[in-house]
Simulated assay, not measured.
Amino acid sequence: MDFFKGLNVDYKAGNKDDYSGRNSKNEDQYWHENIKVNSIENLEIDIGIIGYVCDEGVQRNQGRIGARKGPRSLRNQLGKLPIHFENKNIVDFGDIVCVDENLENCQTALSKMISKLITNKVLPIAIGGGHDIAYANFNGIKDALKNSTKNNIGIINFDAHFDLRKVENQPNSGTPFNQILSENKNASYFAIGIQQQSNTKELFEIAAKNNVSFVSNFECETFNIDLKNKLNSFIEKVDYVYITIDLDGFSSAFASGVSAPSSLGYSPNFVYQVLTFLFQSKKIISCDIAELNPDFDIDNSTAKLAAKLLDFMVLIS
């Protein structure tokens, strides 16, 4: 495909067979009946779903591999959900697939897709895949805004981890936000759900050095006025907001199928409330959901959660 010329990646266009579910008796009422699929050339839509079939970054980070299977698992559960939104044209543009362990080319390809969607006034929702998806998504946003005077990008990351590790030998799923902050003076970072026992002292020091805002998992029991004020202050200082959700930020009671599960995470109800608040800002430019690992999922509960998060973001967008 010319769009990815020179990149060692595979691209698979959207496929309706990835979606399945109950059939409606009258009008179409489920995702699998309404979702459109296409290749990247057709962009007269509102929201574009893109799969990031890659867990090379997780493997480099010594995590549990399997996240490359995440996009397909999410779509399968998404297809079963009833639709409660109206007048939204949504297209699944298929998958960017990592080839020959070439994480960097996979990230570049996803960035190109993100940029094209945003340039055409489409909201991208990328589904992974390892959290190295964040570096790709951010660079796509950055490219789309390269000719704009409004290019201050605020990153809001739902996660147990900072993912601020320094790149030593190769980038991985633990380095994306260090890479972003090192390369972009106009990027701001707010992490929600940080767990002390999942981050070294050095990572907290890197966060402080880079003026990273964060709240711990213990501050995520309820969406209180203090967190609302902190988020408001963060949002007011940026032109656009990029939302990235690492599923390992949730308690393992809700998300067992991830690379690094933890019982100390937050609840889906908390994230739903925060997402509603964030989308009210009208500054959301791109989103993604990372680290779904079907190999360790129980009764597809994590895939169901990821699918419901995507459905909810579509509903409130």
Score class of each variant (00 low, 15 high):
175 T>V: 07
207 A>L: 01
202 E>S: 09
194 I>P: 08
177 F>Y: 15
197 Q>I: 10
162 F>D: 07
171 P>Q: 14
156 I>Y: 09
171 P>Y: 11
136 A>M: 05
165 R>G: 03
180 I>A: 07
181 L>Y: 04
175 T>Q: 05
137 N>G: 11
153 I>H: 03
192 I>R: 01
158 F>V: 06
163 D>Q: 07
166 K>C: 00
191 A>C: 15
180 I>W: 05
183 E>L: 12
159 D>H: 06
154 G>F: 04
209 K>N: 13
192 I>E: 09
147 N>A: 01
183 E>W: 04
168 E>A: 11
181 L>E: 02
195 Q>N: 02
187 A>N: 02
146 K>C: 10
167 V>W: 01
208 A>L: 13
160 A>C: 00
139 N>V: 07
185 K>L: 14
163 D>A: 10
147 N>K: 06
193 G>V: 12
209 K>L: 12
201 K>T: 14
204 F>V: 02
160 A>S: 14
179 Q>S: 14
137 N>I: 12
206 I>M: 06
166 K>M: 10
179 Q>E: 15
191 A>G: 13
205 E>S: 15
172 N>P: 00
169 N>Q: 08
171 P>W: 00
157 N>R: 08
193 G>L: 09
170 Q>N: 11
191 A>M: 05
138 F>V: 06
175 T>H: 01
152 N>H: 13
188 S>F: 08
183 E>K: 15
150 K>T: 10
188 S>Q: 14
207 A>H: 04
174 G>K: 11
201 K>M: 13
147 N>S: 03
142 K>F: 03
197 Q>R: 12
202 E>W: 05
162 F>T: 06
184 N>Q: 04
139 N>R: 08
174 G>L: 08
150 K>L: 12
137 N>W: 00
188 S>M: 11
194 I>L: 09
180 I>R: 02
187 A>R: 08
143 D>T: 14
138 F>I: 03
148 S>H: 07
185 K>P: 09
